[in-house]
């Protein structure tokens, strides 16, 4: 019997790939967002609205991650943004390897924004760094205000927390204060936004924040 002490990071390979992506995005001054949330939390809608606001000032590309179909990438295409669809075929998260393969096939401009819409899921995507600068996590009001408490690992890495479907809040018992407090208990400096699909102001607030982050990145 032989025993070997290894002390190896099980995600070592994924982390190396993620580092390569960070280097690539830094070299090309691309601001990258990893957008996560449950299926139906409004990720694609938020991306559409942000593109509408920013497209005259910044070039935006999108990677759409789904188990199947090109439904979301077809929606994004209509905004005029460059979009690439990844179908994971059953895998519950995007991996840095999938993103590497996608950017090889895309023609992402220097000094631009790349929005990566992860597979709808509040658990698995949290474990994989995709080379992003910003992690955005969405919870819609019908899902309930207890999501941050129930899925803390996801919120541990969140830079921005967006409460979506604010227009439906009256029909739910979603307590904004409770949701925000739970998120701040997990990570006190998370940026917080609220969002309704029909609110020009909401889309503007998020877009303005992103534009500032973009300006910092391209300096």
């Amino acid at each position: 019997m032989a025993r070997y002490e290894l002390m190896r990071d099980a995600l070592g390979r994924e982390k190396q790939r993620a580092e390569r992506l960070h280097d690539f995005f830094a070299e090309h001054r691309i601001l990258v967002l990893n957008i996560m949330g449950s299926p139906g939390s409004g990720k694609t809608t938020l991306i559409e609205k942000v593109i509408e606001k920013l497209k005259d000032d910044v070039t935006i590309s999108v990677i759409e991650g789904d188990l199947a179909t090109t439904v979301d990438s077809e929606r994004i295409e209509k905004t005029g943004a460059d979009v690439f669809q990844i179908n994971t075929g059953g895998i519950c998260h995007l991996s840095p390897e999938m993103v590497e393969r996608a950017i090889d096939k895309m023609n992402i401009r220097d000094k631009s924004i790349l929005m990566i819409e992860n597979v709808g899921n509040l658990v698995c995507p949290a474990s994989f760094d995709l080379g992003e600068d910003i992690r955005m996590v969405l919870v819609s009001t019908p899902e309930g205000d207890d999501k941050p408490e129930k899925y803390p690992v996801m919120f541990l890495g969140a830079d921005i927390f967006v409460i979506t479907k604010m227009d439906l809040i009256e029909m739910t018992d979603f307590n904004i204060e409770r949701a925000i407090k739970s998120v701040q208990k997990i990570k006190h400096n998370t940026e917080i936004f609220t969002f309704s699909r029909d609110s020009n102001e909401d889309a503007k607030r998020i877009s303005t924040w992103l534009k500032e982050e973009y300006t910092k990145k391209i300096k």
């Binding site: 019997m1 025993r3 070997y4 002490e5 290894l6 002390m7 190896r8 990071d9 099980a10």
Partner: peptide, 12 residues
């Protein structure tokens, strides 16, 4: 936060 492969044993 990490998942570490600490050690392995192999038969001779």
């Amino acid at each position: 936060k990490k998942i570490i492969i600490k050690a392995v044993e192999v038969n001779d």
